[in-house]
Computed example of a mutant assay.
Amino acid sequence: MSDETLHEARARRNAAWARFNGQKDALRTGLAEKSIPARIKDAAMDRVIDTVDEAKAVAKDNIPVIGGTLALLAAWFFRRPLINLIKNRFGSDEADEDVT
């Protein structure tokens, strides 16, 4: 290699090394300000907040569907007491009619 090409290669190497050191220093500075676990936590919280906001928007657009679903769930949860209530209410009337 000639002296000129060697000099150019060294200049390119030094420039690349300087860029690398600059990026390394920027990374260290960034990590000193906020650690990786804190960054992960913040990113996760941002996603959770976005998901909650999206769920609120969907719920606002579908209030009747949500109300109907909740009513059906409540009816299913209280199905035995409701069935007993209906049997007692209408069963006693049928028993009274049979007696007379």
Rank of each mutant, 00 (worst) to 15 (best):
A74F: 01
A43W: 06
W76A: 15
R39L: 15
L73N: 06
M1N: 12
K87E: 13
E33T: 12
E4Y: 12
A9M: 08
E4V: 12
R47T: 06
L73T: 03
N62I: 00
I49N: 14
L82A: 11
L27H: 03
F90L: 07
N14Y: 05
A32F: 06
G68D: 04
D42F: 00
A9C: 05
R39E: 10
D42V: 02
E4L: 14
I86Y: 13
A18S: 07
A57V: 03
V65M: 08
E97K: 15
L6W: 10
D96S: 09
D25V: 05
G68C: 03
R89K: 09
S92C: 04
L31M: 07
D46Y: 01
F78V: 05
A55F: 00
T5L: 11
A18R: 08
M1F: 11
G67E: 12
N21M: 14
I40K: 05
E94L: 11
A44I: 06
A15K: 10
F78G: 07
A15V: 02
A38S: 10
M1A: 14
V48P: 05
A9H: 08
A18G: 08
A71Q: 03
A75C: 02
N84A: 14
R79P: 00
V52G: 05
A57H: 05
L72H: 02
F20H: 10
R28C: 04
K56F: 07
E8L: 08
L70S: 02
K56G: 01
K56T: 01
G30D: 15
T69N: 09
D46R: 07
K41S: 03
G30M: 12
A57D: 09
E33S: 10
S35Q: 00
N21Q: 15
S2M: 02
R39V: 02
